[in-house]
């Protein structure tokens, strides 16, 4: 039983990192109806910048972190302004293709700027695991869960209570009405991308620290799809729950099944879940039901 809980708890912590990346994806989809296939690449880019700042330029973490967050927010703004805004009003497939192209541009640019070999992100976190009730908790996972958790709680508060957050939800609900009450819809779009950039920056540091920074890091973006499909494409709590489920399921499954099949369970089970979810509940656990008054 301890083995199960060990897998489960560590899986949840990994899941919180998926949730972080998924949050950025959901936010962009909700506010701007853009399915962003470059979310993973955004994370990768964040990881690259972090590695570059810490290893290449040898900046202390306290300096590197604000620079990283600032540049990823700026990157979000630039992408929205320069690439997505001209696409407003085009059909869905064109917009999707633009984000796919964007993903490749990020891949290429990162390799071009900082090289393709794997880099480490050194974080001042001890390696020695804590043992609580026979469960081995690695400090890196704990740190990741804490950072993701804090970010998400802050975000949810912002989204529910702040003036800008309410404006974002209003825009997601009815764009024209949002304009009619004076909400600056372009500002909302830009802000969604900026927050997605911020989430990607944190995701990049955490994931980069865990698995190393190279272009493969973008693959974490692929795990976002099962997470958001499970939770509901347009639901912020859905992103959180979906991420946690995917993290826990892949960890537990890998622990029990991998010894028999020789590995790989982690990579396919989330997608099996996604396909099942699409068959049973295509709008996800928390996806938006259309309100109709009769």
């Amino acid at each position: 039983m301890a083995f199960f809980f060990d897998l489960f708890v560590n899986g949840l912590m990994i899941g919180s990192m998926y949730a972080l990346v998924a949050l950025g994806f959901v936010l962009i989809y909700k506010a701007t109806s853009v399915v962003n296939f470059a979310q993973g690449e955004l994370v990768m880019f964040g990881g690259y910048i972090a590695a570059a700042l810490l290893v290449l330029y040898k900046l202390p973490l306290a300096v590197a972190l604000p620079v990283l967050l600032g540049s990823m927010i700026a990157l979000g703004f630039i992408v929205e302004r320069g690439v997505l805004r001209p696409m407003v009003g085009q059909n869905v497939i064109s917009v999707v293709m633009v984000t796919v192209g964007l993903a490749q541009v990020f891949q290429g640019a990162a390799a071009l700027l900082w090289g393709a070999q794997t880099k480490n992100i050194p974080l001042p976190i001890p390696l020695e695991p804590y043992v609580i009730w026979e469960i081995y908790l690695s400090p890196v996972n704990i740190a990741a869960a804490v950072v993701s958790g804090v970010f998400m709680v802050t975000f949810v508060w912002f989204f529910r209570k702040s003036r800008m957050g309410i404006a974002m939800r209003a825009t997601a609900n009815d764009q024209q009405a949002a304009m009619a009450v004076g909400i600056n819809v372009r500002m909302v779009f830009a802000l969604s991308w900026a927050i997605a950039g911020l989430a990607a920056a944190l995701g990049g540091v955490l994931w980069g620290n865990l698995i190393g920074v190279d272009t493969q890091l973008a693959l974490v973006g692929l795990k976002v799809f099962p997470a958001v499909i499970l939770g509901g494409l347009d639901s912020v709590p859905g992103a959180l729950v979906g991420g946690l489920i995917i993290g826990a399921v892949e960890s537990v499954a890998a622990g029990y099944v991998d010894p028999y099949v020789g590995g790989g369970t982690k990579d396919f089970l989330p997608y099996v879940l996604m396909i099942l979810a699409l068959m049973v509940r295509p709008y996800g656990f928390f996806g938006r039901e259309i309100i109709e008054r009769v």
Partner: peptide, 16 residues
Amino acid sequence: VFEHLTVEENLLTGAY
């Protein structure tokens, strides 16, 4: 109206 927002949140958007 913004169907998914509460009545009060709807009003608050007006003060944006």
